[in-house]
């Protein structure tokens, strides 16, 4: 095993009015280092001006997603050892505006998340005396979609989002489904309103890369297709049986 490896890191510093460029760093190669450890090494010992986000280093906070050799990954879960001999190219997540270096602007996601009402909607709120019942099977219906850590890898992998920034996108639709399929929730039709317009789920052409890159196996692509089936059924039901009520 070689004892050094080169990282080619994307640099962008708007204050200098400079164009983006790649900077090479040679770092020691350690068996148990992930990409993030290498970046921390650069930050501490070679170049303090490199900016990136990170926090938990255990794949749950969702901060450290980047493009590594053109694939979106969580850098805390990508061992350097698997990228030998390098050089390893590290870029900010694709499809997002870059604030600086490896830091992307993800405010668009938060705006979209709010639009699909990601909270329990009840016809009436019950007092907090007793839990709502939910069997393990009912929990299993939506559990997968509740695992999203908002790491933005799916947005980065989604060409539709790259082409049409209006597109609501994989994670947000999966999270809408997370609530739709929760037996405690009655907000399906309110969310359908937000998602059935042009920027909603109908934009998705099922490329499927979002599900491939998801570190938590949320399967947003599946969530979107199921939502389309549901949306189409609802549309026909409203057309043919306008008096029937949706959940």
């Amino acid at each position: 095993m070689a004892d050094k490896i080169t990282l080619e890191v994307f640099r962008y510093r708007p204050d200098d009015n400079s164009e983006p460029s790649f900077q090479k760093y040679m770092i020691p190669l350690q068996r148990d280092w992930v990409i993030l450890d290498a970046l921390n090494y650069i930050k501490d010992h070679i170049d303090g001006t490199l900016s990136y986000r990170w926090s938990c280093r255990m794949g749950i906070c969702g901060s450290c997603g980047m493009m590594v050799n053109e694939k979106p990954v969580l850098t805390c879960a990508a061992f350097l050892e698997n990228l030998i001999p390098g050089p390893v190219r590290i870029e900010p997540l694709e499809n997002f505006p870059v604030v600086r270096d490896l830091v992307i602007d993800m405010r668009d996601f938060l705006e979209k998340l709010k639009r699909v009402k990601p909270w329990i909607i009840r016809e009436q709120e019950d007092p907090a005396i007793e839990e709502y019942k939910q069997t393990p099977d009912q929990l299993a219906d939506f559990k997968q979609y509740s695992m999203c850590i908002n790491c933005m890898l799916c947005y980065s992998a989604c060409p539709v989002y790259g082409l049409e920034p209006e597109f609501t996108g994989p994670a947000v639709i999966a999270l809408a489904q997370r609530y739709n399929m929760d037996n405690r929730d009655h907000g399906n039709s309110a969310r359908m309103d937000a998602l059935s317009d042009e920027s909603g789920m109908w934009q998705c052409t099922f490329i499927g890369d979002c599900s491939k890159v998801c570190p938590k196996k949320v399967d947003p692509a599946g969530a979107i297709q199921r939502y389309k089936v549901h949306g189409a059924n609802t549309w026909w039901k409203n057309l043919l049986l306008p008096w029937a009520k949706d959940k």
Binding site: Y12, P14, P20, E70, E94, F96, P97, V98, V99, D105, R107, P159, G162, L163, I207, D209, K212
Partner: peptide
């Protein structure tokens, strides 16, 4: 927004860069 963020454009034939695409 600082208004200075950088956005990479997708090439017209973006899908030629990856086998899966």
């Amino acid at each position: 927004s600082s208004g200075k963020s950088y956005k990479k454009e997708m090439p017209i034939l973006w899908w030629t860069r990856r086998t899966s695409h």
